[in-house]
Design a protein around this nucleic acid. Structure first.
Lengths: 350, 350
DNA sequence: TTTTGGCACTCCAATGGGCCGAGTGCTATT
DNA sequence: AATAGCACTCGGCCCATTGGAGTGCCAAAA
């Protein structure tokens, strides 16, 4: 990331004022208004502005318009100029109240996304817990008609996953019970990925000692772990319609691109993965996201964790011209609260 | 519904031509173009048009523009003037191929909505099977930690419903098994609504003979039946973004209203219920729907059934100015195919 | 009686000129 | 280094003009 050590204190303050003003008004800001604030003459301001423009921090859309921040300008602003407003405690309490009462993680994330999108008046996006972080707690098999078995998997966050499995022949209830006991013993307490690997290894090792039946059941459990342990959708998007209120997005083509992107999640998932690694708030501004539909938007994300294990990411999508100083603490706090609520819900294996 | 017996054959043909033209071009159609088609002079056409306008079947947006159909005009058109194009057999086959291979009803409806929205380039809406039509097949209880019980309910369409229930005290696995057996015996084969009523009656009747434990379990099962038997969302909406392509909807406020309506489903559910009663295709044009956001839209719906029991409704939402003669058979056929596929998936109780 | 041609009229949409305001860059001055 | 002054540029707005599309009506033709 480029830093700008050559930037005088005054230039920085001016940039800050300019960005804040632009975020507030949405129109290119001229030298006069800034001059008033700074107690300097417009001409002086213009000189500084010319410098800032040369550094690529601001531009003007045309000759006789004011200036507005470029992506680098925003970058510098959020990285070192911004003073975040701490969140009012009452809001934090309210958030916690709403989140804490949710039964299951799915509900919890649903609520969180709803709250966040309402509070920010923007779109909210939350990735579901990853398979790597879900702990296998308990599996149960239920015989259905037609050589099919219903596998029910309970993970440590008390989420239920179902999968119907087609079996080569009919298993009796007793056989299924035996199998379930075996799997619970082998996999219990492991995360979904290593549970699966462990199960595979165990099956291979004990191949001789296990009955043919159990071996087959093993294959089945493998199947159940493969897909059943993941929720249907990798992430939630809520409040998309809020984006329609922003003038800079009030263009049908743009909106269409955005909404399309929300629906076919792949590219967004990639983006979110970038924010998974480290905890804390991450900001992606405009074209930094690297793909078109999000160009006029910024993304403010934070990962949420349980026991210092990163579970997923949540964040907010809005116009580049958003009130970062309000959004950042909101996202930050929400992520922490979601983590805490999730933690409270995650019980030790029985 | 007002009929127009006083309408001459020629006037009807003219109205038909006008509507078709307007649907095709999207612009008010003048007397000249119609004159060419009809082999009459523009002046003659104008006379007829004046009659049609007086009857409230067409209007002109302003003095020097052509005419376009009013809601009544569309109504008359779809009710008695329209000649539907039969669907190409290849498309039917393809649809069936795609639908028939789906594992569970949820997937099936998901696929159907995707296909329908793609084929029509409009938004598709499908209501999930209603509780009244789902047959209780099997219930199972799984003890969790913390005085909680996981109820697993299998319905006749092989869909799985889960619910976590908080219990006043800890039940043993054996107790739960007994309870499950009891409920399976009492409720098996009944639809969800009457299963619940039946269970309630049974509990009241046998109150003295049943153990306290079983009674409590009964309350629990009641809970499970109440909500667990219904999927989380009452209906699916797919392909909303397609609506952005239509010029008549290319207005952010309109779009916002529409999308908002899709999200908070209540009003839409009411609309769909209207189409539940009788089988066959139903069409709701513009303001007939009776609520604002859908004003510039039409709705083409058909209910789908299994064994002559209406399960739900599916349909398509698009601009009033849509190609009804193509959309109607598509919706019709899809509904039938969904019913057939669902039927194939619905197994007799074990 | 129905159809047609003609004519005056209305209205929209596109075009282009003129003007104002906002803002800049540059230069001379303090 | 900061400022005042000045010429210049550009977008937005208002407004008048024009052309085209279409109508309604009436009188003449079929």
């Amino acid at each position: 990331m480029a830093s700008f050590p050559e930037l005088s204190e005054r230039a920085q303050q001016l940039l800050k004022a300019l960005v804040e003003r632009y975020i507030g008004e949405g129109q290119p800001v001229g030298s006069r208004v800034l001059a008033r604030d700074a107690g300097l003459s417009p001409a002086t301001i213009r000189n500084v502005m010319a410098d800032l423009e040369e550094l690529g921090l601001i531009t003007s859309p045309h000759t006789s318009a004011g200036r507005l921040p470029t992506v680098s300008g925003y970058r510098l602003f959020v990285d070192s100029l911004l003073t975040v407003k701490p969140l009012h405690q009452a809001i934090v309490d309210q958030l916690w109240l709403d989140l804490e009462s949710r039964e299951n993680p799915r509900d919890l994330l649903e609520t969180a996304s709803k709250l966040l999108s309402e509070l920010t008046h923007m779109a909210c996006i939350i990735s579901m817990p990853r398979r790597e972080t879900l702990v296998f707690q308990h599996i149960e098999f239920l015989p259905l008609s037609d050589n099919r078995v219903l596998a029910i998997l309970v993970t440590s966050d008390q989420e239920i996953h179902n999968k119907i499995i087609h079996t080569p022949h009919k298993f009796s209830a007793a056989e299924l019970q035996t199998a379930a006991n075996f799997f619970n013993a082998v996999c219990g307490g492991k995360d979904m990925v290593s549970a699966r690997e462990h199960l595979r290894a165990e099956l291979a090792k004990e191949r001789d000692r296990l009955s043919e039946q159990l071996l087959q059941a093993g294959e089945i459990a493998e199947q159940a772990l493969a897909e059943g342990g993941r929720s249907r959708k990798p992430f939630l998007v809520r409040g998309e319609t809020n984006l329609m209120d922003f003038v800079e997005l009030a263009d049908v083509d743009r909106l269409r691109g955005l909404f399309e992107a929300f629906r076919q999640k792949e590219s967004i998932v990639g983006l979110l993965d970038r924010c998974l690694e480290s905890p804390g708030v991450k900001i992606i501004i405009g074209e930094e996201s690297g793909f078109r539909p999000l160009e006029p938007c910024s993304l403010v994300t934070a990962s949420y964790s349980v026991d210092n294990r990163v579970m997923g990411v949540l964040g907010v999508i809005g116009p580049t011209r958003m009130k970062y100083e309000r959004v950042i603490p909101l996202v930050d706090v929400t992520a922490k609260l979601v983590g805490a609520a999730l933690n409270q819900r995650t019980l030790a294996p029985t």
